[in-house]
Amino acid sequence: MTVLALNGVGKRFGGIQALTDVSLEVPAGRIVGVIGPNGAGKTTLFNVITGAYRASSGDVLLAGNNITQWPSHRIMQSGIARTFQNIRLFASMTVWEHLLVAQPRAGGLWRSVMPIGWADAEARTRAEDALVFFGLEQYRDVIARTLPYGIQRKVEMARALTAQPKLLLLDEPVAGMNAEEADELRALFHGLNARGLSILLIEHDMPFVMSLCHQLYVLNFGVLIAEGTPDAVRNDPVVLDAYLGTEAA
């Protein structure tokens, strides 16, 4: 079963073709990575998937539904959650509030003006779970933006998870982290994956991608130039030439 499928997706900004005929699949329960040099169109790809940009051509399918024309909030409510390359937390909110803000809202207007315990007790439970899973209990009532960088990353991931996604999009999750923090995150991602969550990630850190992903796609100048298992991609001459260079050979 396929969680996410892109069929021939293209995105044009004026005269610039940012993505050309991109087709990829994220099978349920898999961790899929997209790699490629800076400016290859990786973040554009995420923005098209999440509805921040409209695809100029092609279709995006989420669990079989064509979501290409859906507004962002509907896509997010239907099972995709994402993190950002630059951490985007809200300056006025505590860690706990971040874990409530992304939750799919049950019920109508009346419920939304009740305290969370009444409005949606399950939302509260999910927030508690995410808090524990990411080990953020001690930061519960701290304004999230004041926390160290690595913790902020975790808050952002926890926030994404509380939306109960089928698919988690991670935009360079270990950027700016040291090896130890990256190892810790890898363990967390494996843990999430073991719970059945599918993950699509963009990442520059090659050892991290190679050790985490089941399947890789390589994007260069908006075109997919290779796909396969990490081992296959590592040894693909086209990829070596375009991106990995001698570093990973």
Binding site: A52, S72, H73, M76, A81, F90, A91, S92, M93
Partner: peptide, 16 residues
């Protein structure tokens, strides 16, 4: 508050 601070991020978090 989420929309006041950053409308695009809020939308991407599923806030209508």
């Amino acid at each position: 508050r989420a929309i006041a601070e950053n409308r695009d991020v809020a939308r991407l978090l599923g806030v209508s």
